[in-house]
Design a binder for these strands. Structure first.
Lengths: 228, 228
DNA sequence: ATACAAAAATTGTCATTAATTCTTTTGGAA
DNA sequence: TTCCAAAAGAATTAATGACAATTTTTGTAT
């Protein structure tokens, strides 16, 4: 399918084609979705021809997609053996958390210092539905939580940091891990962070977020089954 | 070419073939080298057929390589338009530095807390050739500097962090940027950091490294030509 | 059960074809 | 003539299918 877009460029009306024919990128998103939604299980081998047929494409764009996913550490490719969905053990999850803390704390400081007021308000709005209520829908909260952290990183103003988050796939991994602590506990922490941002207190926001994330990390470390 | 490796696996002698036939990975390393060594210039378009012929391979493995390099942010692919070598402006270099600071400060804390004594000694040895001398060879120092920081990250014990550094290509970018400050200035800072690590003072090492990197970052920001 | 050999499945690579973009040429109006 | 727009042609990328190399599975004999 091809879509035509008309726009003004250098004062002239130009027609631009936006072709949705990039099978590689499409496949990338689909396979990523399949991994996150556990349709492809960790450790499972991906048979290329089979999956390609399932997606209705040939192997070349699928291989492109797998290449990307390997770079994002979501799959592992062993030459001549094939590609398997990567699985993270507890030690690796803690490693991921440590990286996340390092980058996200930096992001929140930048956000507090530079973000526009409307962006701060937007962040605040994400939390509203869950205030003043006892029955918190876990699924909705998880989504809001994910959005909350994503917004801070995306709007930090440091685009490279955001790319690193995506390419390093920290967000996806963290989504896959799911909620570590109950909403009741984390909601207040989120609110406090927003307050600090609102006051443009970057250092305070950073230390609050750090403690917020460290708590979750500690829970994973102290989890039975964690091997040091 | 095929190489056979003999090794003991589960108590049995096993022969393993290591085929260097992975053209994709080979091409990846070659092209990466070409970018770092400026044989392919920033902004330059890569014509796939041309480069493939130059490397003596077909376009399929070259595309694999470019896919990887795109994930590492070293090249940029515009669908149906081609692949160009990515160039970083000052603003992006600062962004890269901010990410580097976040991750490397975390790494040095872990290193100070967990590293074996021999690793700390190894770090110290890297600096020795440049002490007690007035004539510092810039090139040799740059290599030592690069090794110094690489060691801290690699031996932090957090493998994911190291992968993130590689995939995010922070190290390569930083190598490409080169020395920001004169050796005389940074050598003493490096020595102080080693001392803190030697004393297992993670917090001290972290704050010293942070200041060390922040100084370089500030120099870039204050550089004429930096657009905020 | 174990070890080996043959068969099947799967991956990596290439050459070809189709689709898209870029460049040049052509034609017409100011 | 000069400028712009449309059309034709060349160049380049994307995708498909086919083939060869390699691994995994299956079957058979020890």
């Amino acid at each position: 399918m091809t879509i035509f877009v008309y726009c003004i460029q250098n004062g002239y009306l130009v027609t631009m084609k936006i072709s949705s024919s990039d099978l590689g990128k499409q496949a990338y998103h689909k396979v990523k979705q399949m991994i996150v939604s556990k349709k492809l299980l960790p450790g499972q081998k991906i048979v290329q021809e089979q999956l390609a047929e399932q997606l209705g494409i040939s192997r070349t764009p699928l291989r492109d997609a797998l290449q990307r996913l390997e770079a994002e550490l979501l799959v592992e490719s062993i030459p001549r053996r094939g590609v398997v969905v990567r699985q993270f053990n507890d030690r690796e999850i803690v490693e991921i958390y440590e990286c996340r803390i390092a980058l996200e704390v930096t992001a929140v400081r930048l956000f507090a210092e530079k973000a526009q007021q409307s962006q701060i308000d937007g962040l605040r709005k994400l939390l509203e539905p869950f205030e003043h209520t006892n029955e918190i829908d876990e699924k909705a909260y998880q989504k809001a939580d994910s959005n909350f952290h994503d917004t801070i990183i995306k709007r930090s103003g440091n685009q490279f940091l955001y790319q690193l988050f995506q390419k390093g796939n920290l967000l996806v991994c963290i989504d896959a891990i799911g909620l570590v602590r109950p909403p009741k506990e984390t909601l207040q922490e989120h609110l406090d962070i927003v307050t600090a941002i609102h006051n443009r207190d970057g250092a305070k926001a950073a230390s609050l977020l750090k403690e917020h994330l460290e708590k979750s990390k500690r829970l994973i470390v102290e989890n039975p089954g964690y091997e040091n």
